[in-house]
Amino acid sequence: MNPGRRRTILITGASAGIGAALARVYAAKGWDLILTARREGPLEALAEELHGYGAVVTVITDDLADPAAPRRLFDAIADRSLIVDGLVNNAGFSRTAGFLQTEPEAHAAMIRVMLTAPVELARLFAPGMAERGFGRILNVASLAGQMPATGGDTLYGPIKSFLIKASQGLHLEMAGSGVHVTALCPGYTLTEFHDVNGTRAEVSSAYPAWMWQTAEHVAEIGYAALEANRPKVTPGFMNNVLAGLAKHLPDATALRMVGGHAKRLKRI
């Protein structure tokens, strides 16, 4: 690293929620940032806020549902002569109307944004990190990736499960290279995520306040785990209890448990 060059981290889905909270954490820790999402307005507003930390912030809007977006983003960063020292794959959404009620195009977009794009972005940026002997890759997965898939939101959990496993594999492969890789697996978090997919009223009434965490708390835990090079971190004691139960319970029992979850949310 050249003397005086600040580290730079790329955060996808940075316009709100956990992505925006992670941007604030990294800015406070002295990093510069590249923020990307579909919505330019929220990104520009966040960039203006982060300037208060002394961070240099670059905004690049794109839609990771477009198969060409990861390469386009990589090229746009290279054209600006920026070096990516860290990557946060945070962009994501879900469709909870049910498998048969959701258009195939929406399922394809979910897979591209939350599965294909993180893999492609890691493959594009990790070689440079390894060559420089320093890198950070944080994949924002979910507690859902450690649980049986939930009826009504059929693909979300399996996609996040893939992301956890891929993160663990890359964590092992990058051992000794100076590149840290961590899967962050939050449970219910107070963001606009549930507003976007139309489940805010259901989840708010189905689960007590103590099950919810703030995006700021999740971001701090994710940052610390990545610096410690932990392969996976699940914020919250009860979330770890639930993940442990799902791992050790018989399949039939675990499926009944998540089936009750889906019924509380009125999704099946």
Rank of each mutant, 00 (worst) to 15 (best):
I164F: 03
I164L: 07
I164K: 09
I164G: 08
I164Q: 07
K165I: 02
K165M: 06
K165Q: 12
A166V: 01
A166G: 10
A166F: 04
A166N: 08
S167C: 02
S167E: 00
Q168Y: 03
Q168D: 03
Q168H: 13
Q168E: 15
G169P: 05
L170K: 08
L172T: 03
L172H: 11
L172G: 08
E173H: 12
E173T: 07
E173I: 01
E173G: 11
M174L: 09
M174W: 04
M174T: 06
A175N: 10
A175F: 06
G176Y: 10
S177H: 11
S177D: 06
S177W: 05
S177C: 11
G178K: 11
G178P: 12
G178S: 09
V179S: 06
V179P: 07
H180A: 11
H180I: 00
H180T: 01
V181H: 07
T182C: 09
A183R: 06
A183V: 00
L184E: 02
L184T: 06
C185G: 12
C185L: 07
C185Y: 09
C185K: 14
P186D: 05
P186E: 07
P186W: 08
P186C: 11
P186H: 12
G187L: 05
G187Y: 11
G187H: 13
G187F: 09
G187M: 07
G187K: 13
Y188K: 13
Y188D: 04
T189K: 14
T189F: 13
T189S: 13
T189Q: 12
T189D: 12
L190N: 14
L190P: 01
L190Y: 05
T191W: 12
T191A: 12
T191Q: 13
T191F: 09
T191S: 15
E192D: 15
E192R: 15
E192F: 05
E192K: 14
F193R: 13
F193P: 13
F193V: 04
F193N: 12
F193E: 08
H194F: 14
D195W: 05
D195I: 02
V196D: 05
V196W: 09
V196N: 09
V196K: 15
V196Y: 04
N197W: 10
N197L: 08
N197M: 08
G198Q: 12
G198F: 11
T199K: 15
T199A: 08
T199E: 10
T199L: 15
T199W: 04
T199V: 00
R200C: 00
R200A: 11
R200W: 03
R200S: 07
R200M: 04
A201W: 05
A201E: 15
A201D: 15
E202P: 01
E202D: 10
E202W: 03
E202N: 14
E202I: 01
V203Y: 00
V203L: 04
V203H: 05
S204A: 12
S204R: 06
S204V: 00
S205I: 01
A206Y: 05
A206N: 10
A206I: 02
Y207E: 03
Y207A: 03
P208K: 09
A209Y: 00
A209P: 04
W210V: 01
W210P: 07
W210M: 08
M211H: 13
M211I: 01
M211Q: 14
W212F: 13
W212N: 10
W212A: 08
W212Q: 08
W212P: 09
Q213D: 06
T214Q: 10
A215M: 06
E216G: 08
E216Y: 09
E216L: 03
H217T: 07
H217N: 06
H217V: 02
H217M: 05
H217R: 14
H217K: 14
